[in-house]
Design a protein around this nucleic acid. Structure first.
Lengths: 205, 205, 205, 205
DNA sequence: AATGAATGAGCATTCATTCAT
DNA sequence: CATGAATGAATGCTCATTCAT
C-alpha cells in the first residue's frame, strides 16, 4: 500500500492540515490530471507557496500515493464487509454497487484520479498495490457473477468477462460526471443503475 | 472542426507518412496520456529525432488535434448515416452501438485519447469542436431514448439522463480495454452489450 | 506603458535584486542584440542558472519590456520638465539635448537597445508604447524646431523634417559609442554637440 | 575581404540569380536583423525552399559576408576616387558626404545591415575586414577634418574626434529612414546635410 | 510552518544545414 | 536547380525539488 513516510517532519505535521492539503490536491489532480497539475497550482489553491508543501509531503507523487491508498483502504473496508455478509449473488452485486456509489460520493476526486491514472501508475513499483487491488476487485465481482450464473440468477448466454467489465465500468465511470450534493443521492443512483443492469432498459414483452 | 494547417509543407508532405506518424503518436498518447507523452517519445517510436516531427506537424498539439478531428469526422459519417435511416428507437440504438464499436475497432487509440483528454481540452478554443460534437452526440442519443420512452419501447420508470449516461459510458469505456484482433469482433461485442443494456443481466422471472 | 506583471512573486521579489538582474540583462542585450542574447548568457553573467531567472521575470521579453519602459519613464520625466519650463526654441533644444545626454549617461544600455530594436519591436502590441513615445518625441522636437523657424531663430531654408532627423540621430546615436566615466561629462558632450548643430563646424566667413 | 567560396557549385551558379538572391536576403536582413532572419524566410521571399539556397551559398553567414563585402568594395571605389582627387578639406568632406548618400541610395539594405550588425560581427575573424574598413574610414575622415582645422577651414574649438563621430553618424544613420525613390534625391539630401553640418541650423547673428 | 530564492533536469520548438533523389 | 525529409544543436521556458532563514 502506501510507502510509509520516512521524514520526521511528516510525522510532526498536524493530521488535520494534512487532510486538507490532500483534499485540495485531489481536487486539482481530478480536474486537470496528475501530470498536468503543477505543485504550484496545488499550493496556490491551498494559499501557500510551492516549496512549503514539502514540509508536509515528500513529493508530489507521495501526495498522489496517499490519496489513492486512503481511498482504496476505505473502499476495501466497505467491500470486505459486504463480501463477508454471506449474501446471495444478486444481493451481493446490489450491495457492491451501492457501496461503490457511496465511495464515489465520499471520494469523488480520488475515484476520478484512480480512473484516469491507475493504468499507467500501476507500472511503477510504488503503485503495485493498485494492481493488487484491481485483482482482488476482479475476483470479488467476477466470482459473484459466476456464482450468480451457476445459481441461475444471472443469464448464462453472456460472456461473463464481458459482463464483468460492463458492470464495473458502468459503475465507476459515474465518477466522471457525479457531483456530490446533486439531485440524486448515491443510493438512488445505485438503485437506478442496478435496475438497468439487472433488468435492462427495454420494456419487457 | 480541425483548423486547416496553413503551411504548404504540411499540405504537400506525403499523406502516407503523415498518417503513419499520427498513428504512432495516437498510440503513445493513448498509452501514456497526452501531457505525459514527450515529443521525443513519439519520435523515438517513429524512428526519427524529435525535431524532425516538426517538418510534418506544427506542434504536438496539432498532432492531437488532427488525431481527434479525423476520428470525429469518421464517427459522424457513420452516425449521420444511421440517424438518417429513419429507424425505430430500438433499432437506432442498436445501430449506434454497433457503429460505435466499429469506430472503437478502427480508432481505438483516438477513442481512448478522447475519453481521457476531451474534458480539459474542450476549454481551449482550438478544441471547441469537441464540445460541439459532445452536444450533437447527446442530442442524438438522448433524443432516441426519449423517442423510445414515448413509443413505449424503453422503460419510463428510469431517469432518462441517467440512462443516457449509462449507455454512453457503457459503450465508450470499452475503448480502454478493447484490443483489435481479439477474440470478439466489434459486431459480436456490440450484440452482447446491447443484450445486456436492453434486457439486463438478470434471469427473467 | 509596461504591462504590470500579474504574478505576486514578481511584485514581491526584492526590488534590488530585480534591478541588478535587469542591469545585467540590459548590458548583454546592448552588446549582442536582443535576439542574439540567450537567456543562459544573462544568467551566466548574473551567476545563476537560466531557469532561475524565471523566478524573477515572466520571460526574456518581459525583461526587455521593463528595461525599455523604465528608461522611457525616466526620459519623459526629464523631457516633460523641460517642455513645461516655457523656454524659447533655442533654449528648449539646448535643454533637450543636454537632458538626452544625461539619459544616455544613466541608461546607456537601454538607449542602445532602444536604438537597435525599437523599430521591429513596435510591431508587437506589447511594445506599442514605443510608438506612442516616438510620436510624442517627434511632436516635442519637431514642434520646437518649427517654433524656432517661425521665431527666426532657426534657418528657414532647410527641410524641417530633415533637420529633425538630423538632430535626433545626432544625439541618440551617441549611445553607441558613449562610455560613462569617459573623459567628457554628458554636459560637456552636450555643449559641443549643440555648438556643432547650431553653428556648424565650418569657420565663419 | 570576402572569403572566396570553396565549393565548385558556387562557381557554376548563374551570377544573375546569385545577385537576385543576395538582394532578397539583404532586404530581409535589413528589415528584421540578421539573427532574427531565418533562412526559410529568405527562401520564401525568393520562391524556393530553404535547403535550395545551399546550392547557391555555403551558409547564411556567407550571404551576409558577400552582401557586406560587395557594398564595401563599391564604397571604397567611390571614396578612393574622392581621396585621390586632391581636393581641399571642405571640398573633400562635401564629396565624401555626397558619395555616401549615393551609396545609401544604391545599397540601402547593405548600409542598414552594416549599421546594425558590424559591431558584433567584427569580433569574428571572417569579418575582420569590417574593422579594417572602419579604420581606413576613420583615417580618411579624421585626417580630412584635421587638415581642415589646420587650414583654418574648420573650427578649432571643437574636439575633433567628437566632430568626426558627429559627421559620420549624421550621414550613415540616414540609411535607417532613407527610402530610394523618395522626394529628395541623394544629392539633394547631401546638400542639406552639408549645409547643416557646415553652417549649423541657427540663424547667423 | 512557511518564505524566498535557487537548482537542474527536461521539454516543446526552432533553425541552419545536409543529402539522396 | 530544386525538393523533401531529416539531423542535431541550441533556445526559451517549466517544474519538482531543496534549503537557508
Amino acid at each position: 500500500m502506501p510507502t510509509d513516510s520516512k521524514k520526521k517532519t511528516q510525522v510532526t505535521a498536524s493530521p488535520g492540515r494534512r487532510r486538507e492539503l490532500l483534499d485540495t490536491a485531489a481536487e486539482v489532480f481530478a480536474a486537470q490530471g496528475y501530470n498536468a497539475t503543477t505543485v504550484r497550482k496545488i499550493a496556490d489553491e491551498a494559499g501557500m507557496l510551492a516549496g512549503s508543501l514539502y514540509y508536509h509531503f515528500d513529493s508530489k507523487e507521495s501526495m498522489l500515493d496517499e490519496i489513492l491508498s486512503t481511498f482504496l483502504d476505505e473502499l476495501w473496508q466497505g467491500y470486505d464487509a459486504v463480501l463477508a455478509a454471506g449474501l446471495g449473488p444478486r444481493e451481493t452485486i446490489e450491495a457492491l454497487v451501492t457501496e461503490s456509489f457511496r465511495e464515489i460520493d465520499r471520494h469523488r476526486a480520488a475515484v476520478a484520479i484512480y480512473q484516469k491514472e491507475s493504468r499507467h501508475l500501476a507500472a511503477q513499483p510504488r503503485f503495485h498495490y493498485l494492481t493488487d487491488s484491481q485483482q482482488k476487485f476482479e475476483k470479488a465481482w467476477l466470482g459473484t457473477l459466476e456464482r450468480g450464473v451457476a445459481d441461475q440468477v444471472f443469464r448464462d448466454d453472456l460472456d461473463v468477462r464481458l459482463t464483468y467489465r460492463f458492470v464495473r465500468d458502468t459503475v465507476w465511470v459515474a465518477a466522471s460526471w457525479y457531483r456530490p450534493g446533486g439531485q440524486h443521492s448515491p443510493e438512488e443512483i445505485a438503485r437506478q443503475y442496478l435496475s438497468m443492469v439487472l433488468d435492462g432498459i427495454a420494456v419487457r414483452g
